[in-house]
């Protein structure tokens, strides 16, 4: 069972590493933010699976904070610039 969970974790980490390419090359900032959001969701999945492997149940709270973080980062990213409205 632990082996199966670890294999799933490895697949997810590989997918995160692939999404990293989009963060690096992404033509627009939106693309980079999208890739970062996918990394956040994969991070939640990895933390939850890791909680079963290393047997630390408190890691569920870390996943909760991860999901809050994604919302905060996207909202901060899509806010309009103040200076543009004044011109």
């Amino acid at each position: 069972m632990t082996d199966a969970i670890l294999i799933v974790i490895l697949i997810l980490m590989a997918s995160v590493a692939a999404g990293l390419v989009r963060v690096a090359i992404g033509p627009t900032p939106s693309d980079r933010m999208m890739a970062a959001q996918l990394m956040g969701t994969s991070g939640i999945a990895v933390v939850l699976l890791l909680a079963n492997v290393v047997e630390v149940t408190a890691l569920i709270d870390v996943a909760l904070i991860f999901s809050l973080l994604a919302a905060i980062a996207v909202t901060a990213f899509t806010r309009r610039r103040v200076q543009d409205n004044e011109e």
Binding site: S15, V16, A18, G19, R22, M34, L38
Partner: peptide, 9 residues
Amino acid sequence: FVAGSVGLL
């Protein structure tokens, strides 16, 4: 997840 990453790329 893998499909999402491939789609993103």
